[in-house]
Every structure is written in structure tokens, then in C-alpha cells.
Amino acid sequence: MDMAAGILAGDMRALARGLTLVEERLPGARELCVKLAPHTGRALRVGVTGAPGAGKSTLIDALIRAARARGERVAVLAVDPSSPRTGGALLGDRVRMTSHANDDGVFVRSMASRGALGALAPNAGEALDLFDAAGFTLLFVESVGAGQADVDIAAESDITLVLSAPGGGDSIQAMKSGILEIADLWVVSKGDNPQAAALKHELLAMLALGGADQLEERVCVVAALANQGVEELLAKMLAAGAAARADGAFAARRRQRVRRRILAAAAELCAEKLPTDTPLLTELEARIRAGDLSVVGAARALLSGGNV
């Protein structure tokens, strides 16, 4: 059986190998994505982001349990950072999700970020497409511990959860803009911590300044390990997903996502064509130092083969 057919039939080994194909961009990866594309668009994609240690993996573990009780089939793409020095990675998100290891309705895949900016891995979106085609109904994508500008996750998700944990002192200050703005739902994690209520109020006050609406419903306090607030959060996620599906926001987001991927792929193809170490580059660099040319002017010259 070929790989696409295997994935569509729910063969987990075929899915695992397909994910490697896509991740490594091996021969056959593009054909696989083309074949599976008509079978995507059914699953709800939930992005989970927040600072390192905010409790993303633990929250996902608890949400998996609640979602399984509702009969959802759940897949997780857990992204952890690659070392910029050695290219290696230690992928540890599974440690918090092992209670589902023997459940056929749960599939967890770890992925290294491989130098991609924006807290995701380069082919994370395509990996989610494979989960979708394989019949998983609820997909989580967990970003690397994210900072202020790591907003790519929202582009690949239907719903984005942004976590902040109490006791981080400046936890909100640290994410004033950027990732707070991409959230559909804000989650105060470690909700059994005495400072959680204070964090919630701080968050509400700050989001109100930014003009966000329906704040009371959209800020959730969750204690994942104590299983408090998990079911409520899942219900909100699924309701938001259903609403977006009904009013067309879902479909619009999907179209946007494909357009964005085309542009990203085009940018990559352009980058591959750039001359990197030519005598021209040396000459342009000298002219910039001499005050003869601007950087943008030099870039134009590079692209046109030397005509300034």
C-alpha cells in the first residue's frame, strides 16, 4: 500500500513515516501533501503557546484526557528548540503526555524547530495536514517556549491558546504585545497557585486596555494537574471552533494559511537563488563603507547583477 493510502486508512506507521518525509523534505514529500490535501480541513487545529515552563505540555495532557472522554481522536505536534550550535535537540514534551502512550486514539509527535523563527518547526503546518488526513479530529500544536514576537503559531491554528503562569513576576510585562494579541483564549495556568487570581485580574485589566471583547469568557484559569477548569476550557475551544466553522471564519483562515504558505515557499525559492559569496558582494560592501551606496541600493544591485 502506498504511503498516502496508508495514512488515509489510519495506518500509524505510515503516518509516522510520512511525517519524517515532510519534516526532512525527502523525495516524495510534496507528492504526499498533494495527494492528501483534499482530505484535510476537517480537524480543529489548536495552537498552544506561552513562555518556557508556563505549563503547555501539562495542559495539553489534561486536554487530551478530556477530549478522549468526548470521543475526539487527538494528535499533538510538540515543537522544542534545536541547538543553534550543534543542530541537535532534546525533545522532552512527551514526558508530560505518557499517560496516553497506549491509547490508539492519541498520537504524539515531537519536532525540533531546526532554526525556524517564530517558535514553530519549518514544516509544522504540513505535519498537521497529515494528522488531519489520518482522521484525527482535534490537533494540538505546541510551540517552543515563546517570547514576544512568536506569532507564527496563530497562522497555522484555528484557535490559539496563550498561557501565562502565576509567580513569574513580570510574566505579563514580558508579553505586552505580540503573543497576547494572537490569542483566542487566554489561559492562566497553575490555577491552584494563590497568585493565579491576581494574574487573572492583571491580564483582564491589560486586555481591556487593548480593547478585546468578551474578556470574562475568554480568560480561563486552569489547574491542569488538579484537573480544574480543563473541561470548561475544552468546551470553550470546541464551541469557538464550531462557531468559526458556522460563520465562515474557519474557511477564511484556511485560505489565508495556504496563501501564506505559498508566499513562504516562494520567498525560500528566491533566497536559494541569491548569490552569496561573489566578488560583486565584496565590491558592494566596499561601496557601502565608502558612503557611496545604501544597503537597499546594494541589494538591488545584487539582484540585477551589478547595475546600480
Binding site: T86, G88, R94
Partner: peptide, 13 residues
């Protein structure tokens, strides 16, 4: 050590 040798290591605990 394997991470530092450039491998992607999934640690399960």
C-alpha cells in the same frame, strides 16, 4: 550528549 552530537533526542522520562 547525543543532542550535543547533533542528534534529535526524544526523552520519554
Amino acid at each position: 550528549a547525543l543532542r550535543d552530537a547533533g542528534m534529535e533526542v526524544v526523552y520519554t522520562g
